[in-house]
């Protein structure tokens, strides 16, 4: 049976916890709004880029001199997984669900006899994967996921690293693993294969737009510029989605924590009051029976 003092301390400490979690929830909510606005704002560029790429890729993909970023190296022996997580914890299952998906994918690829390399973006993912797959991690980028505002330059930096590895022949297939933001409570772990480029869905046959484009300069030159840019755009999209997802997950987790500590405080207060009454009653009984004995 805990003493009254223990209970009092316990209640005080849970109250402090609740203050912190509810503050974190509010902060996450405001950051979420910003992150969502950013995700929204980045969409027009990404969709137009995808359209343009679709138009171009259709004509060039069959040519033998098609850029490697588009057609791949012709093998798929070495896979690079770009695991994108947050830099911070306390956001529910956000990081661990990404890492779990990454582990499953690694196991499957290995079972198929493929080689796997990892590039970790975000501290949490690296920390969790380091113990088991430390030797697979080729690079680690920190300090991007925690930023107040995602910048395109960050995405470009990551994309440049990836293409440098690709040009060096370090891998054949590159997949981004990140959380797609669906709503505050649901984030969906998403695999996005960026190298070789998955041709966008054959789109809009009703508009016969793609047929007669003029290109200036040639298609292949434009494509050469467009593909690295597209990689950066994909990475940027993933970063922004992830940022929104992280804040959403944190908000949900902190909301839960706040509610739980509220319940706990209620329960503890009840026990405290009962114990206090029991003690008073006991003392009274002692006094009364003492007086009667006289």
């Amino acid at each position: 049976m805990p003493s009254l003092k223990d209970l009092r301390n316990r209640i005080a400490s849970v109250k402090q916890t609740r203050k912190i979690t509810s503050a974190m929830k509010l902060v996450a909510a405001s950051k979420l709004r910003r992150a969502q606005a950013q995700a929204e704002a980045s969409r027009p560029y990404a969709t137009r880029m995808a359209e343009m790429l679709g138009n171009l890729a259709a004509g060039v993909a069959e040519l033998p001199e098609a850029p490697k970023l588009l057609s791949g190296t012709g093998k798929e022996d070495v896979h690079l997984l770009v695991v994108m997580t947050a830099d911070r914890g306390l956001c529910g299952g956000f990081n661990s669900s990404i890492v779990r998906a990454a582990r499953q994918r690694i196991a499957r690829l290995r079972a198929e006899g493929k080689e796997v390399k990892l590039l970790c973006v975000g501290r949490k993912g690296r920390d969790m994967l380091r113990r088991e797959y430390g030797d697979l991690i080729v690079d680690y980028i920190a300090g991007v996921a925690g930023k107040r505002r995602m910048e395109f330059a960050d995405a470009r930096m990551i994309a440049e690293k990836v293409s440098a590895l690709f040009d060096a022949g370090e891998f054949d297939v590159c997949t981004l693993i990140f959380n797609r933001f669906r709503s505050v409570i649901t984030q969906v772990v998403t695999f996005n294969q960026v190298i070789p480029v998955q041709p966008p869905e054959a789109e809009k046959p009703e508009e016969e737009l793609g047929a007669v484009y003029e290109f200036e300069p040639e298609e292949s030159v434009i494509l050469g510029e467009l593909l690295p840019r597209n990689l950066a755009v994909q990475v940027y999209g993933a970063l922004v989605e992830n940022a929104a997802g992280e804040q959403g997950a944190r908000m949900a987790a902190m909301d839960n924590a706040t509610r739980n500590s509220g319940e706990m405080i209620h329960r503890l207060t009840l026990t405290y009051n009962r114990t206090r009454q029991a003690q008073i009653t006991k003392e009274l009984i002692e006094i009364i029976s003492g007086a009667e004995a006289l």
């Binding site: 704002a41 980045s42 560029y45 137009r48 200036e216």
Partner: peptide, 27 residues
């Protein structure tokens, strides 16, 4: 006419003409 940057849509306008700096000359 739409002008888009990776981070946001900069302009979306109805205009009469746009002259853009192509690599092979303005058009």
């Amino acid at each position: 006419f739409d002008l888009v940057a990776p981070e946001r849509l900069l302009a979306s306008l109805e205009v009469d003409m746009v002259v853009a700096p192509g690599v092979e000359g303005d058009f």
